[in-house]
């Protein structure tokens, strides 16, 4: 039982023969007599074989070609989307200038329209005062068209 416990603690090292020779001999002798430990050792020996298989795993056919194609397309994509001067600086700058110009034109037209309106109402006020001073009937001034500059 003592050796069973000891072998359980060192089974990996035992199958890899990574133990002092005295210990290896002791375990060899024990495994020949103990069926349970012999089964465990067999399991771990199969693990070593599986680990050997894992070492020899190979990439699938044409993996190299697929990788090269993938790299090429990814690098091309990155290059086409990385025009920092136009994409990051020039484009936003042009948009800002455009918006600013549109706003200025809007303000200019708007202010001019306000001037026209105020001039129009001034003219109307003068006509009204003249009409009332001279007692001109209202229907006679209805068709007056006010010209502005």
């Amino acid at each position: 039982m003592e050796t069973c416990k000891l072998l359980h603690e060192n089974v990996f090292a035992y199958v890899e023969k990574d133990l002092p020779p005295v210990m290896l001999q002791q375990f060899d002798k024990h495994v020949a007599e103990c069926a349970e430990c012999a089964a465990m050792v067999a399991d771990f020996k199969s693990v070593l074989i599986l680990m050997e298989e894992q070492k020899s795993i190979e990439p699938r056919p044409f993996a190299e070609t697929r990788i090269l194609q993938g790299i090429e397309s990814r690098l091309e994509k990155r290059q086409s989307s990385s025009f920092p001067v136009f994409g990051r600086i020039l484009q936003p700058a042009l948009i800002s200038v455009g918006v600013a110009t549109a706003l200025s034109i809007g303000f200019f037209i708007g202010s001019d329209f306000a001037n026209v309106n105020s001039q129009y109402s001034q003219n109307e006020e003068i006509t009204e005062s003249v009409r009332s001073d001279l007692n001109v009937p209202e229907f006679m001034t209805d068709d007056i068209i006010y010209f502005t500059e």
Binding site: P59, A63, R66, I67, G70, I71
Partner: peptide, 10 residues
């Protein structure tokens, strides 16, 4: 693993 190999190469 193949996808990651592409990432590593890039």
């Amino acid at each position: 693993a193949e996808d990651l190999a592409q990432d590593v190469c890039v």
